[in-house]
Design a protein around this nucleic acid. Structure first.
Lengths: 151, 151
DNA sequence: CAGATGTCAGACCAACTGATATGC
DNA sequence: CGCATATCAGTTCGTCTGACATCT
């Protein structure tokens, strides 16, 4: 809290990324969004990829198969998703978002965008789009197993 | 994993931020950096703010005072920081980075920048700087209690 | 004494590890 | 039978809550 003593040294991009993410996480509570941030991201993916495989969802979210089950259990209990057996390979599950899920997602997304406006208050609309574009392009460069996220 | 079924709907900026951060976290393990990501960020702040107050460090990292103690215990055990009583108010601690801490930070930062190059492979150098600038400017707009991070 | 700071111990939650059941 | 998928139970880790000691 003593800006005068700052040296010219810069904080790394990854550190800034991590900290800004922390700001968002601290504010994007379940109370605000109506669901957990993780659930929101999962529903976003499911909304854009109809009938996606459970394992693909897991790999895109970078979750162990294990953790993916837990996440889907939560979403299932709330009635936001359904798990159906894949007729081609009955070991697999196909996950689909329900109407209730889509509705809840819409609400949560609106809240998150509100929050985004506050967190990115220092950036004008063009810069915000630039930021989004850069983040999206960076994500596209990741391991293909994460591909479902990119639109 | 079925790009053909993607709809035009976009993933939100906050979702992308969260996911890209996850990519970094998954890869920035203690094995790679020689220390935890959190420790690295703390040392970065201490390197740029000589003799900063423990509570200011905590608020910048968005840690409870409690958690801040635990983090400093780890760094102290490794000999990376020292806690000194503030002569002005002997309830307070002033935290300083040691020579060993600075050395370890330098190493870890180099590794993190290597990792950054891989994670941001899709962006050219100008775009990476643009991204860093946007993130830094966004952070500057946060609550003043987080100010130590901004350079 | 009241308030602030830092510390510790116990509770809590989220994520990882191993074992089981089903289907290929 | 070996392999893959999903599920559950036990463990571990990081984080939060409350009590305590020191100092102003």
């Amino acid at each position: 809290m003593n800006p005068a003593t700052q040296t010219p040294q810069q904080t790394g991009t990854m550190g800034l990324l991590s900290q800004l993410n922390r700001v968002v996480f601290r504010r994007a509570t379940e109370d605000v969004l109506g669901m957990k941030m993780k659930q929101l991201i999962a529903l976003e993916i499911l909304a854009r990829n109809e009938g996606c495989l459970q394992q693909d969802l897991g790999s895109t979210l970078m979750l162990d198969p294990n953790n993916c089950v837990l996440l889907l259990n939560e979403l299932d209990e709330r009635g936001y998703v359904e798990r159906r057996r894949d007729p081609c390979d009955r070991r697999r599950h196909i996950v689909v978002i329900t109407a209730a899920g889509a509705k809840a997602l819409k609400k949560a997304t609106a809240k998150l965008e509100e929050l985004e406006g506050e967190v990115l208050a220092n950036l004008d609309p063009a810069e915000r789009e630039q930021l989004r574009d850069l983040l999206a392009r960076a994500m596209e460069g990741q391991d293909p197993s994460v591909a479902l996220l990119c639109g």
